[in-house]
Design a protein around this nucleic acid. Structure first.
Length: 609
DNA sequence: CGTATTTGACCCGCGC
DNA sequence: GCGCGGGTCAAATACG
């Protein structure tokens, strides 16, 4: 078994461990671990051993708690609790839940534990009702008992079904409520004298308290901005107690200090340290990896050629702001050794330049998955830490995307959704932009929209949403830190095979006859793990914990598999709302006369001039 | 031979 | 108006 799989399993298990909670003993108890934990355990022999030995020796001490996540929707009256957890992400309420609730954990699609579950239900019925006692009943009576039990179960299922519908409705309502609140909040004047920059920080993986270790991460933070970055990245609620958490968090704040990517890069060290700590705890790995950070959305000036295409491709018009005026950019920071990060898309390099202030050349890439795709990206190493790769995406793909990109898409889509909420204007631009960054197309029709995008992200963002106090900062826990909320985040049916590269299809190895698969790390040659990636995505999106683990795994396969260095990335998303319409050039600018045929080289042209 | 990368020059926006 | 810097182009080159 590869170390990657082991790593993923370890993370997955750790997430499950986070979900565990104390509960009065044994009632719901001794069943097998939940699907996620079980699946993870099966991937790793050692973990598997531990998982299965646990219930035997400890009489269910922790094992039962794992299953609770599934159970929490199965009891009448849990509707309110679910709602509560959805909004607060608080575990305490769940702790008080009657243990009997754990017995009603049948979630229909769970085929793994069906047998055990049925048995337990039977036992529970016997215990409570006292029916079917020993001895003298005839077989027909027992059959009738079973029949009645099955009927009861069906009733229960029906009730559960109704309840789930209510939950869905409630969630949707809450979603819109929060959306409205957020919109109102965004409209409040915040530091109107400064350039408005709305930033979304999405950290995926692990976060820790501000005092996190100084391990092998980014350079130490040195400025106020970095401190602010710490605050934003760490999150507002879960990390203060010094625990390392594995999860995904999204923060939004307004700032005027992040003028360029460099500053944001400088501001990142803490989170990486946190990732390091968490990673070591989680996977007992020699070195940290698998940490993601999504930062930002800036409002900047400048022309927006891609934005025009973006809006056009999206086919959705803005309500109050012309989407063409928006230049959407998503910057991803990855700690990897290769020249490029593996983002699931296929790129062709068309230029390279040494930018001022950074001796590392900046490379320019164009998406070649489909001809005419307007998406471009820039890749440059971070000056402070050469192991960090800063990749900036721009534009929107006009084609469906490989599964690897959709995995990233779901992460970005979270930010997209958040930006969508924060944006009072065009929702399409926002989502398109993030989709572009994630490698997910929203154009030309929504049929290209990844099944993992937005639809899953929208509920993804809602749980645990808290609006911070001063500083105009908001923090959203996506999952991980809040185990209860995570249980609600499985809205998407995995394995949707809308496109050829959806999880159900084998990956397009070397699509287009490329030298290497487009999902492979650009610099490390051909050592991709597309199959693993494809496997993961379906399950990943249906289980947030798996998603987290898979993201870690996904990022981890890039670059430094053997070096033991941490894999870190961050997303920066920018939207330009300030560009004037006049400054928007045509997508294909006619600034230079096309040179047909073997004309003179530019030097000669210049000489002529 | 086809495709991707390299690389020097050009174009354009912005600040002074 | 000028210079600077970022972004892009496209011929040359490398590579499989």
């Amino acid at each position: 078994m590869s170390s990657k799989k082991k790593r993923a399993a370890a993370i997955d298990l750790s997430v499950e461990a986070e979900r565990r909670r104390p509960e009065e003993g044994g009632d719901g108890g001794d069943r097998e671990a939940s699907d996620g934990a079980a699946a993870a355990a099966e991937e790793d022999g050692d973990v598997k051993q531990k998982q299965r030995e646990g219930p035997k020796e400890e009489t269910g001490g922790e094992e039962e708690k794992v299953v609770e996540v599934v159970a929490d929707q199965g009891e009448d009256g849990s509707n309110e609790e679910i709602k509560y957890r959805t909004q607060q992400g608080d575990m305490m309420e769940e702790d008080k839940q009657p243990a009997a609730a754990a017995n009603v954990d049948d979630d229909g699609g769970d085929s793994d534990g069906a047998g055990a579950s049925a048995e337990e239900k039977h036992m529970v019925t016997e215990a409570t009702g006292g029916e079917g006692d020993d001895g003298g009943d005839s077989r027909t009576a027992m059959a009738q008992d079973e029949l009645s039990e099955m009927q009861e179960e069906m009733e229960r299922m029906k009730e559960e079904n109704r309840m789930l519908r209510r939950v869905v409705d409630k969630t949707v309502r809450d979603y819109y409520e929060l959306q409205m609140k957020l919109a109102a909040y965004q409209q409040q004047p915040a530091a109107a004298d400064e350039p408005k920059e709305t930033e979304v920080f999405l950290s995926l993986g692990a976060t820790t308290a501000a005092g996190g270790s100084g391990g092998g991460g980014f350079p130490e933070a040195k400025s106020k901005e970095q401190a602010a970055w710490r605050r934003r990245s760490v999150g507002s609620d879960d990390s203060d107690d010094g625990k390392e958490d594995l999860g995904l968090s999204l923060s939004l704040g307004t700032s005027s200090s992040y003028d360029d990517d460099q500053k944001a890069v400088e501001a990142r060290p803490h989170d990486v340290d946190g990732a390091a700590a968490a990673a070591m705890i989680v996977g007992s790995r020699p070195a940290p990896r698998g940490y993601a950070l999504l930062e930002s959305s800036k409002v900047q000036g400048g022309a927006a050629p891609a934005a025009g295409e973006l809006s056009a491709a999206g086919g959705i018009t803005s309500q109050s702001v012309n989407p063409a005026n928006r230049k959407t950019r998503v910057s991803v920071r990855v700690r990897c050794q290769g020249p490029t990060m593996n983002d699931g898309c296929q790129w062709r390099k068309y230029g390279q330049k040494v930018a001022k202030g950074n001796p590392c050349p900046r490379a320019y890439y164009r998406c070649t998955v489909a001809p005419g795709c307007p998406v471009r990206k820039q890749v440059q190493r971070c000056l402070e830490d050469m192991s960090i790769l800063v990749t900036t995406y721009e534009g929107t793909h006009n084609h469906p995307l490989p599964v690897g990109a959709t995995a990233m898409a779901s992460t970005t889509s979270a930010a997209a959704t958040f930006m969508l909420l924060s944006s009072t204007t065009s929702s399409s631009s926002v989502s398109d932009a993030a989709a572009a960054a994630a490698g997910v197309s929203t154009a030309p029709s929504s049929s290209y929209l990844s099944p993992y995008l937005l639809n899953s992200a929208s509920p993804l963002l809602m749980p645990g949403a808290t609006v911070g106090g001063g500083g105009g900062m908001q923090h959203l826990n996506l999952f991980g830190n809040s185990p209860s909320s995570s249980s609600l985040l499985a809205p998407q049916a995995p394995g949707s095979s809308k496109y050829p590269w959806s999880p159900n299809h084998p990956p397009l190895a070397g699509a287009g006859g490329n030298k290497r698969p487009f999902w492979s790390a650009g610099g490390d040659g051909d050592k991709p793990a597309p199959a693993a990636l494809a496997e993961n995505v379906g399950a990943v999106m249906s289980d947030p914990n798996k998603f987290s683990a898979a993201i870690n795994n996904f990022m981890g396969k890039d670059g430094e598999s053997s070096s033991g260095k941490s894999s870190t990335f961050a997303w920066t998303r920018s939207m330009d709302r300030t560009a004037t319409p006049a400054s928007v050039p045509a997508p294909a600018r006619p600034r230079r006369e096309p040179v047909h045929g073997p004309g003179p080289r530019r030097g000669e042209q210049a000489a002529k001039l």
